[in-house]
């Protein structure tokens, strides 16, 4: 028994030594490597995308449902950010044929912008027309991270190998949203008419930072001794909890503008209507004059998700 246990320890020790030290780098000058990469990442920052979901709910409540007996339509399909464009540069140092360490700087960006309108009307002895227009509705998300990683390479051919890796570091992200909207209501009766326009611009932004971790799997292919490419898939984990920012509102019938600064949170609005009450969760950083119980929870900027990148490798 003791002999079997000792044998196992010895084998394990030899394997570890062989993993890290037996295969030697063929040339000392190829220890360094620079990689450039870009691709697409799939994210779902749920709390951030609540901005669009809340806007859809508002239109459902205040427009579509309120005017349900009217004719018309409204494409109540607000953009959300579900993907981003990452790109980065990574410096790699090979300690052995298979093992390397890295330092990467990468960023990502995505913008969605849409212009749309809808109208509802009825016409009998009198006519009424309600039109709402967004010109535009904009979302923007970007970030930057610095990550240190460790990678392990497994040859599967003379010039091809599979690599696994992990990285961790710190990320900073910012977002902003802008809604430029108008709402026009026209009533034409047999003996009276009414025409009014309401509208405004609402802009809010936020930024946060936090830990980012990545787990990577990639396929490398060298085209020559010093240049190659790779295809990498990775899962990133990053959830930022302390997000703060500013905001600005202009309303067309009120001169001036309102500005504010505040911490982002999720607000629960219990909207009291003639035909019933509705609940909407909306992210906001505007809390002035409202009762504390409306704060449902913290706002989390969740940048976690899978990504797929293509890259070029330069061995130095």
């Amino acid at each position: 028994m003791i002999k079997i246990g000792f044998f196992r320890v010895m084998v394990a020790t030899w394997l570890v030594w062989a993993l890290f030290f037996l295969p030697t780098i063929s040339a000392a000058e190829e220890r360094f490597q620079i990689e450039l990469y870009g691709g697409i990442s799939f994210v779902n920052p749920k709390d951030f995308n609540l901005l669009s979901k809340a806007e859809q709910q508002y239109n459902d409540i205040y427009f579509i449902e309120r005017l349900r007996s009217y004719n018309g339509y409204f494409v109540n399909d607000f953009p959300e950010i579900r993907e981003a464009i990452p790109g980065g540069i990574r410096f790699r140092y090979h300690v052995s044929e298979k093992l390397s360490f890295s330092l990467a700087a990468e960023g990502f960006f995505q913008k969605k912008e849409q212009t749309f309108e809808g109208s509802f009307y009825y016409s009998s002895t009198a006519s009424e027309n309600h039109t709402k227009r967004y010109d535009p509705y904009k979302l923007r998300l970007s970030g930057f991270a610095v990550l240190g990683g460790i990678h392990y390479r497994l040859p599967v051919g003379s010039k091809t190998d599979i690599e696994v890796g992990a990285a961790a570091g710190w990320a900073k992200a910012q977002f902003d949203f802008s809604s430029n909207w108008t709402y026009r209501a026209i009533y034409q009766g047999t003996s009276v008419s009414y025409d009014s326009v309401d509208g405004g611009i609402l802009e809010e932004d936020g930024s946060g930072n936090g830990f980012m971790g990545q787990a990577m799997l990639r396929l490398n292919r060298m085209l020559g001794r010093r240049i190659g490419f790779f295809v990498e898939t990775a899962f990133s984990y990053c959830r930022m909890k302390s997000v703060e920012g500013g905001g600005r509102e202009i309303r067309i019938n009120i001169p001036g503008e309102t500005t504010w600064e505040g911490a982002w949170g999720i607000k629960k609005e219990e909207i009291h209507l003639l035909w019933g009450d509705k609940e909407v969760l909306v992210p906001t950083n505007y809390w002035a004059g409202w009762i504390d119980s409306q704060r449902e929870r913290d706002f989390v900027l969740d940048l976690s998700g899978f990504r797929l990148v293509l890259g070029i490798v330069f061995r130095l």
């Binding site: 509102e249 609005e269 209507l273 505007y286």
Partner: peptide, 12 residues
Amino acid sequence: HTNSYFNRLPLR
């Protein structure tokens, strides 16, 4: 307002 601040009707 009906409890949604940015959907309020501000007037002067």
